[in-house]
Nucleic acid binder design. Structure first.
Lengths: 145, 145
DNA sequence: TCTTGACCTTCCCATCATGGCAAGCCCCAT
DNA sequence: ATGGGGCTTGCCATGATGGGAAGGTCAAGA
């Protein structure tokens, strides 16, 4: 099948399929004489795997490792589990960062009258940070957000 | 003071100060005859405001709006509050997405023996998604993660 | 006064995953 | 055979940030 059909069947856009090929995440597809990429059901299966891993927040590099294990019949499930739990730890870290931001802002917003007067504790806090009743400060360096 | 000192004093890197100027988030700094940017304590004050807003996860566009209100003596605190709460909603949405990913993965990992055998429910799930006891599927389209 | 090192300037490139657009070729159905 | 839709490659853009190069400037010490 052509790339468009593979895209529809896998949920990965044609653009991304080419990108994954270009960056070596997936092997180069076979081509017709005219240069069209051709995909098998097996390929679509792999693309769906990738798509699903993206949905779970894995980076392309993480997926590269997952794919390696997936293809390895002699893999040890411990390796897969380690990868998954490492990713969970990253997710939880980011969640904590976002949570801190959200609670800080909610606390401030709760103190804001929200009327037609200009005085606002949110702006005051941005202007001159006060230690707030938030467990820990929100650090953005690791967040990528 | 020079850009380096302003950077140290505000917590915003010199690189980013130039970027903010270039994109119009902050007005062009005055210059010495030699072309060096010069900053006042007021400027550093504003940069700290920006830095703090970034720490709370606001995008540069969001900060643009916040700065507008900050500078506007006739602002209505309701506008600030609305901005803040809209951002909180975005944060909570993203948190929910990440949370869904994390719990899904944790559930799968809990089912994985994590030994030297190759069979692994994590890979099986990636291969052929099963409806899991997760409240909602994790959609990545809005996540930017 | 000269030198040196730290600072500043601009400009370009890279990140990460994704989308958009354009020019040009190909294939199938009518 | 022609038209419309699909395919190809290549370039550009995103958002916020860092890195580095090439070259100008400043201040302190010899």
């Amino acid at each position: 099948m052509n790339i468009g059909e593979a895209a529809k069947g896998s949920g990965v856009s044609a653009k991304m399929i080419r990108y994954y090929e270009e960056t070596g995440l997936i092997p180069p597809a076979a081509r017709t004489e005219a240069g069209y990429r051709i995909y098998s059901d097996q390929d679509v299966h792999m693309l769906r795997f990738i798509r699903r891993a993206r949905d779970l927040g894995f980076s392309v590099e993480g997926i590269r490792e997952l794919l390696g294990l997936w293809r390895d019949r002699d893999r040890q499930s411990a390796d897969v589990k380690r990868l998954a739990l490492a990713h969970v730890a990253e997710l939880r870290l980011k969640i904590r960062e976002l949570e801190d931001m959200a609670t800080t802002l909610e606390t401030l917003a709760a103190c804001c009258h929200g009327n037609d007067r200009p005085d606002c504790p949110i702006l005051s806090e941005l202007e001159a940070p006060t230690a707030l009743p938030t467990k820990k400060g929100a650090f953005r360096k690791l967040s990528g957000f």
